[in-house]
Write a protein that binds this DNA or RNA. Sequence first.
DNA 1: ATCAGTGTTGACCAACTGGTCAAGATTTAT
DNA 2: ATAAATCTTGACCAGTTGGTCAACACTGAT
Lengths: 211, 211
Amino acid sequence: MTNKDAARADTRIQREKKARILDAALQTFSAQGFRGATLDQIAEEAGMSKPNVLYYFRSKEDMHRALLNQLLEAWLDPLRDINPEGDPLQEILKYILRKLDMARQQPRESRLFANEILQGAPRINDVLISALKTLVDEKATVIRDWIKAGRIAGCDPHHLIFSIWATTQHYADFDTQIIAVLGPDDVENRFDEAAKFLTGFYERSLKPVNN
Amino acid sequence: MTNKDAARADTRIQREKKARILDAALQTFSAQGFRGATLDQIAEEAGMSKPNVLYYFRSKEDMHRALLNQLLEAWLDPLRDINPEGDPLQEILKYILRKLDMARQQPRESRLFANEILQGAPRINDVLISALKTLVDEKATVIRDWIKAGRIAGCDPHHLIFSIWATTQHYADFDTQIIAVLGPDDVENRFDEAAKFLTGFYERSLKPVNN
DNA sequence: ATCAGTGTTGACCAACTGGTCAAGATTTAT
DNA sequence: ATAAATCTTGACCAGTTGGTCAACACTGAT
């Protein structure tokens, strides 16, 4: 008996094709921006015809929305996992390294997000001011408590989080510049070097003064 | 007697109109990206007709090139001004605050640059691997010498510079997100708070260990 | 085997886009 | 005043783009 509800489960072909299209769309959007990407490019990248792409996603908008929704989940996870009961410095360093790892493993997602924010976040601003703000405020409180308890050095928790976003995502979003500046000799290790640098840097800066 | 050379100086009207067009183009490119911006938008923003815009700049490409050239100059200046003879910590903090001030005063320029790098720097990659790399390497050597002399804490100079770029430009490029997360109460002071945070942060992290 | 549902695409369309052009309006030097 | 040079724009064009559609091909449950 087939599922007759409105939200019928995807068939095998639907799952495979949708995944292939989203991957192609991610590739294209992250490299060209929403407006810069064309359906022809996405179809080409996905290895199918343009009408076929539009059979699975009603519009270019739809693909973009799907990608952003999918992305936002994964994006907030590491922050969500900061454990108020854990060791402050370890929790923050773990968060940094996890964000850096995402920049290494998922640079396309990072660039997609960067593109969206750069354009003024027209499609996700409501998520930013609701879900993201709530989560950040919650973690900022945790950090503020750690500071009050003298377990890490004092600083504005919000701006601490911003600095972590900035320094980690930078390695995905500005990769072209980093490759250009480091030159062929130092390029390969760049993420390991970044991990080393950021670890030492945040360690020194967050170590409580009276310790 | 009028200048009959090939490179005739611009008339008053030419200077004014070119400036107005470049300002409109900066506004549009930084908000929409190169491909997302249209000549109609730029013309509208500049308050003139599209053919009139194209009378002063041969093509959309031309405007973009002009903006990037103009930008790259100002972009490298603060780094260039780091003084090897100055106090290490003061020089670095001065650099940070100057970059942060540029993010505050010239967010459009920062976003234009970010857009270009995000797309893989197709139009300025050669500048990055030549002029920028040379300058960064030179300043990295200065910083390395400071470290060797025990005047600041040890860390990879290149990644230190990357972190400064990241943390400062973040306040321009990701302003939408920052506004969303901070909420109405803390938005107004965000750049002052950022300055305070970054100063304290880099001070603690760069202070030599044995001092 | 069959056939209803699902998947696929070439051909097409209207809107948009970067850019041209000829014809007029304005400025400038004399 | 006037004519050369500069400036301005409506009308236009060819190429691109997101999206549609009718016709055809495939799949899988019976």
